[in-house]
């Protein structure tokens, strides 16, 4: 039967499809082996989120550590709440005192959230070591940001119109 040659070609076809799939995964979507791994959630309230969208990235000093998973309006306070998904490898990494700000990459680029890590009091560090408060849930005493926690220190997006308005207002006063 001549099907031997066909079988080899089908095998090559499948291999080609797998290579193409890998190319899409690794080079195009940057789907590292751990890229789709576990995440934990954080919340933050902003006065104004500007052009931030779901799936915008969360960066620490330019390194992507997570993504915005959801943006919604708080029912009573009527201010935007942003839900973040941070990769689990950064669990117990960022202190409670970290701050968030909405930044823009370049002049016209897309907006992202910059996370500025805070500090930890030395006595808290001792407490972690002694009581192991971060090792077992609930983490309420843990001085690191943990699942579901809210980041209180936030800076809103810079809105160009507000800036210009402010500038003109100041000019008028002089």
């Amino acid at each position: 039967m001549t099907s031997r040659k066909n079988e080899i070609l089908v095998g090559l076809f499948v291999a080609l499809a797998i290579i193409a799939g890998l190319l899409l995964a690794l080079r195009v979507a940057n789907q590292g082996m751990a890229g789709n791994g576990e995440t934990y959630k954080l919340n933050a309230r902003f006065d104004n989120i500007g052009g931030l969208k779901a799936r915008s990235s969360v960066k620490v000093g330019g390194v992507v550590v997570g993504r915005v998973s959801r943006i919604y309006l708080h029912e009573q306070d009527l201010i935007p709440v942003v839900e973040l998904e941070i990769a689990s490898e950064y669990q117990n990494t960022f202190p409670d005192t970290s701050s968030l700000s909405i930044l823009t990459s370049g002049l016209l680029g897309e907006q992202f959230i910059g996370l500025q890590p805070g500090f930890i009091f030395p006595e808290d560090l001792e407490m972690i070591e002694e009581d192991k408060v971060c090792d077992n849930a609930p983490y309420s005493d843990c001085p690191y940001l943990t699942n579901g926690e809210e980041i209180l220190d936030t800076k809103s997006a810079l809105v160009l119109e507000d800036l210009i308005g402010q500038f003109l207002f100041n000019q008028g006063n002089e």
């Binding site: 899409l24 995964a25 080079r27 195009v28 979507a29 990235s57």
Partner: peptide, 15 residues
């Protein structure tokens, strides 16, 4: 070309 593509394209959403 590659890096902005990587940060924009999502595996589940797009691929």
């Amino acid at each position: 070309y590659w890096s902005i593509m990587q940060s924009t394209v999502d595996w589940n959403e797009d691929v």
